[in-house]
Design a binder for these strands. Sequence first.
DNA 1: CTGAAAGCGCTTACAG
DNA 2: CTGAAAGCGCTTACAG
Lengths: 341, 341
Amino acid sequence: MRVTLKDIAEAAGVSIMTVSNVINGKRARVSAETVDRVRRIVAELGYVPNAPARSLAARSSLMIGLLVPAATEDSLAISPHNTAMLGHIERGLRRHGYHLLLRGVAERAEIAEALRSWSLDGALLLGFLDEEIDGLDKAVIGTTPVLAVDSYSTNPLTTGVRSDDFTGARLAAAHLLDLGHRDIVFAGPAFTDVGVVHERFLGFRAAFDDRGLSEMDCPIEIVNTTYDDGVGLARRLRSSHPGATAVFTTADILAIGLIDGLKDAGTAVPEDISVVGFDNIDVSAYITPKLTTIAQDIGGKAAVAVDRLLAKVTGQPSPDTPHVLPVQLVERASTTGPRDR
Amino acid sequence: MRVTLKDIAEAAGVSIMTVSNVINGKRARVSAETVDRVRRIVAELGYVPNAPARSLAARSSLMIGLLVPAATEDSLAISPHNTAMLGHIERGLRRHGYHLLLRGVAERAEIAEALRSWSLDGALLLGFLDEEIDGLDKAVIGTTPVLAVDSYSTNPLTTGVRSDDFTGARLAAAHLLDLGHRDIVFAGPAFTDVGVVHERFLGFRAAFDDRGLSEMDCPIEIVNTTYDDGVGLARRLRSSHPGATAVFTTADILAIGLIDGLKDAGTAVPEDISVVGFDNIDVSAYITPKLTTIAQDIGGKAAVAVDRLLAKVTGQPSPDTPHVLPVQLVERASTTGPRDR
DNA sequence: CTGAAAGCGCTTACAG
DNA sequence: CTGAAAGCGCTTACAG
């Protein structure tokens, strides 16, 4: 039989609720002597609080949902970047005594369902599109604190944390421009007039503006951010942009595929084409040539996400502007000056 | 206010428990007409079952724990292999209507705590050492179904699923031997006389036996399985094993570090040294030279783990031998015949 | 096919 | 500092 509050109470000769107070650290309400006695018996009997019972009674669960997009029948496609986030987030929550419910969501209704069903104390949204975040109103998330990571949605309910995408892309483009490149391709997923990719595009353009090169034409290549899409881009790059001497990609994994595809086609990197990535995932230092990229502070992003969410959970006023983490250029071997022509 | 069974019952003019029966699909106990009416009202009012209440009453939670080792203050160091497992496991559980609680555990007591506290219906152990699994008895896990992934522990309580490590290493060694190598280093983490690494060592040796080369001396290099350890191994390889023409590593990430380290030291791969990995993680196809390795069936492993665990959860008799998944050699560019000397 | 009652193990006001 | 009572929202026998 499992040990319950009642068992402890009987063994200690006190009421159930005194035990409850001890367990929950409400020491002000119990004499030090009683606390000790109860503590001892709890340890002796190996009492473990029943979380569902606690959740039911307290309408709170000490459980945080980490919601990640997933096609219905698909397994969670967790990017290297999000994997690292996941690890840090779990640690952060664990240190604060919270538990993590990981859930792939295929349709918006599942967000509401997850939140309400489990009496989640809060949720982190990782990897959703801005328009999906935009659609989250009180009707779907209720009063549960929710925070979006890497989102530019202006939804005040989800104000969260992200990297300084604008500056990152600007640094990347500045690096290429300073090396002497002028014909630079911007490669990334389709974007609208808001969001991570759009910000990176603006930052990219800003570097040109900074140098009075505003009029310069910058071809955009729309590609998904996978290795294979990078390889595909390499195949058509020479014909679609014969004059290009450099490519800025919005993700390392895309840059890595691009470099491999380029090499296969006999194009030297960086001698013929320089490539800059974004993220600084581990792999980027393993490939040849090592990738020049923009490093995000993943640990910092996770920590801020957890801290902000838990602040909301515990009822502290939450800032209405997102926390923006700095990024930095990591110069490695995939970039050099353009070859004389 | 949240909608409860009671609200539905009142609106439908039936008892709470009839609604409960409808919700839980016990249709045999309710007339078709009533089912329809209740269903309609449930949809109309947007009823979502309260999971904690259900867990408390039913002593079951539809929740499965995924437990992963973690040093107390550390973030989950999820290897590429385990990340892929995680994605597939989440999908498998979701399809079966279960939820996933992800938990890093620093000490054994936390396993028991997680299981009991949340009334978990079951748990998957990912990445634990065999000796940790060995220590799990009824006293710590109670009657909760638990299944270990990638374990050679003979603990009958956790009998699970793993890859055919023996055959994998044997294939790898056979490949190198067939290419003409004779001086091959085995590189992997410290191992005892049981476990994944030990099996791989046995398989490695078996390939020599197969060819009547049993007497051959095979140096073992004990290294952790990280990129940096691979680089470190490269640094000392030439001096510690001057005659070696090939290295078998127990993990791709180690092989990748090794290759980078060798290249930095001016040693050509595969011309001077051939390298074989194990896992076939994505990255292995991105590096130069592309890594020859042993591919595990990760999706299959996750699917079997989920199926077996849920079978146990639903009370079906569970096999007392682990499910072993086949592996295969993926020949790429990091191996070739030894140079004539 | 349907329902009234008890109970899962806790917390929350409230009263002393 | 301590406790008796009510209730969180559900499921489980049991009875009709």
